[in-house]
């Protein structure tokens, strides 16, 4: 059987590039925040797949911490966009 992890990783990285168009073009600021949130989700998946492909548990811990920190970042950006700070 072909190892499925590295092709999946390539697909995820392509998706990140695709979403980055919205990050660059987005007509309004919330559009860019949505694109950034999607990129964060795909990055967490990519880190998980890397962790499995190389059998490194540490990378999965990195993925958990990245997910939680990106959530804090999204909340902060939302506060700034909504002019509550």
């Amino acid at each position: 059987m072909i190892d499925p992890w590295l092709p999946a990783l390539v697909v995820l990285l392509t998706l990140i590039l695709v979403v980055m168009f919205r990050l660059l073009w987005g007509p309004t600021v919330p559009d860019r925040v949505v694109a950034l949130d999607a990129i964060n989700t795909f990055t967490v998946c990519a880190i998980l797949i890397l962790g499995v492909a190389y059998h490194e548990t540490v990378l999965v811990d990195v993925a958990i911490v990245y997910a939680l920190l990106s959530f804090v970042g999204t909340l902060y950006l939302a506060k700034v966009v909504g002019r509550e700070i």
Partner: peptide
Amino acid sequence: LGAHAISRAAYRA
């Protein structure tokens, strides 16, 4: 939760 925060912020903006 992040989606909820973004939609609320977009409406407030």
